[in-house]
Design a protein around this nucleic acid. Structure first.
Lengths: 347, 347
DNA sequence: TATTAGCACTCAACTCTTTTGAGTGCTAAC
DNA sequence: GTTAGCACTCAAAAGAGTTGAGTGCTAATA
């Protein structure tokens, strides 16, 4: 059987209507709604064909049709023309904020309240190299290590001492650490390097051990992907997601930040020029989301670092709106990062 | 009417039974369950009295009784004998962790999975004074401000420069800042102080402005109470919380970290020696929780700083278990802090 | 040959009624 | 003061009927 022009028109009408109403779509509705001027009987015949081809199903005999995953997929890939007008919200969407963390939290929050879906945003993942490292003596027992990695991500580590150091000692350590570590990527810092540093530090080798533990801790932490979520409760607004168990599962998945960030990082955006990916139902990378759709976008910083934005909603989410919102948002983000770079001038 | 011994026994039996089953308790159940050896008719008479006194109600005629808020309150205050045996989980409950943040997250998580309620933990709130402040030149355009406040809470702020500074300038600033700010409580830092510093800084007054904005930002942030939550989805396990709307409201309240931490900080623990407080139904400080109970505990650090732990569950939560778990937990926390203090020696 | 009108059929959802059973309050007897 | 007994209540479950949107099929139509 062939998917001719008319069948496509009908499929599109069905999906569009279902996205709007959430109710199974009947033949008579299409007969009136579309400008095909066909009787409901003809539509019925076509619908039977579309069902056979796997694009739509009936929830039960004598009900209208709803799209299958394949139906949504076809709609998203081929039928959905995006809203081309730029959103009015643009510009006012985000206040300018300096701290990355605050900015991303806000992105998640604004996006959730704009779309009424659950949202998540990961911090950009750099190929992290150490840019600056400094130890300071806070008091006689505590040494503070501050590590700045590429992209101005700052990590602190308080190191407890059981020997007395004076400021001169600390200065020496600082020189030693910076000589070795500045510009090193986090993977470069291995046992060998540590051994070498210990050798050069002479009498302070023991303390260095202590310090190193602190620093590697901080580095590990810097490597973890931060993720911010918002709008979890929006999930409850879509009762078609079914029973409480499913909802619970979803919310649990949404609470598990680690799994979420892995999931987002795992999405591959290489082949898609806009950086936007849509996962429908079973296509989602996490079992608990198989009754939902996931839309992800990638934003990019001037340094090349990338972060992800994700939206989880029901399969009948407003894909058009979500995609266009995400596009605008990534553009705006790119803009903010570019501007903030101009202000700070070059490195 | 008087609340005699027998009425108390019956009330206790009713509450205990309802906590266990979640079903309204009938007279026949009590007649068999308790060792009073009274017929159900007698129990019925007593129950009518208890209802009149406001301790129990019938959800509808011809149903058994359930406790009112007053009934729960009486049970909690007078009838509940705590489990005195120490929990087996004690000791293994928490791995030792160095970073406060990680530790508290774990507390929330462990507590949620142990109790099956929603949990939250605030970071200890210090009377914060500046302990150490340092500016460092990360590169020509970026100045990093590191501020350590009492209790070794560290805040960073990256300050973008549009003038060139050399290391000597930075050193001057550092001396200036530390002279003025070290030991100052966060409230002390006011306009007057800033004016005075500007005067002394001479030609750099403009830059200082810039720097100050950064520092006050960081200080503000340090004053915010951090809060960690876990087990939000446990709320969905108790359908007696009623319709989806209530549940949504609850979950939303639970997502709003700011409101939550205000709420917890607002609970007054002065008159209770164990530091544990129980809020039942309407007693809870937040409207959305009026169908739940909230149990809070206070833990204490050797420096005197206090933090709160909160548990939200249905009114028919297992108060005994929750209270004893919280007691053990705060003891264990106190222990961890004491130990970590011993190791780091004194300040 | 494609389209359509017409009709019998299906089935979830709704309403209305009946049944069930746990639980009560009251009264009279112990 | 306690209890047996009984009539009464009412939510919840089960059943019966009604409705209406929607279908598939067939025969007539363009």
């Amino acid at each position: 059987m062939e998917l001719d022009e008319r069948k496509i028109t009908i499929l599109k009408a069905i999906v569009a209507n279902y996205l709007e109403t959430g109710e199974p779509v009947g033949s008579r509705t299409i007969s009136k709604y579309s400008d095909l001027n066909l009787s409901s009987a003809t539509i019925r015949n076509e619908m039977a064909d579309l069902e056979e081809m796997g694009y739509i199903v009936q929830p039960h005999t004598s009900a209208g049709r709803i799209p299958t995953d394949a139906g949504y997929r076809f709609y998203v890939d081929r039928l959905m023309e995006e809203k081309e007008e730029v959103e009015v919200t643009n510009g006012a969407l985000l206040e300018r904020v300096d701290r990355m963390e605050v900015l991303l939290k806000q992105v998640a929050r604004v996006l959730a309240s704009n779309t009424n879906y659950a949202t998540m945003v990961t911090a950009p993942n750099y190929a992290k190299t150490v840019k600056f490292i400094q130890l300071s003596l806070v008091d006689s027992a505590n040494l503070l290590a501050v590590i700045v990695v590429d992209g101005n991500i700052i990590k602190n580590q308080m190191i407890h001492l059981n020997v007395l150091l004076d400021n001169e000692d600390v200065l020496k350590f600082n020189i030693l650490l910076n000589t070795f570590l500045q510009g090193a990527s986090l993977e470069d810092i291995n046992l060998e390097m540590i051994q070498e540093m210990k050798k050069q530090s002479g009498e302070y080798a023991d303390i260095l051990d202590h310090i190193f533990t602190g620093i590697t801790d901080a580095i590990h932490e810097a490597q973890e992907v931060d993720i911010y979520t918002s709008g979890a409760t929006n999930i409850l607004k879509y009762p078609e997601l079914g029973d409480i168990e499913k909802t619970t599962g979803l919310l649990e998945a949404f609470e598990d930040k680690e799994e979420l960030s892995h999931m987002l990082e795992g999405t591959d955006d290489s082949e898609n020029d806009s950086g936007i990916q849509i996962f429908i139902g079973e296509e989602t990378p996490v079992q608990n989301m198989k009754d939902c759709s996931l839309v992800t976008a990638t934003y990019q910083m001037p340094e090349g670092a990338k972060g992800k934005i994700g939206i989880i909603g029901p399969k009948r989410m407003d894909y058009k709106k979500v995609v266009s919102t995400l596009k605008n948002l990534t553009i705006e983000l790119d803009d903010i990062f570019k501007k903030s770079r101009e202000v700070t001038s070059d490195e």
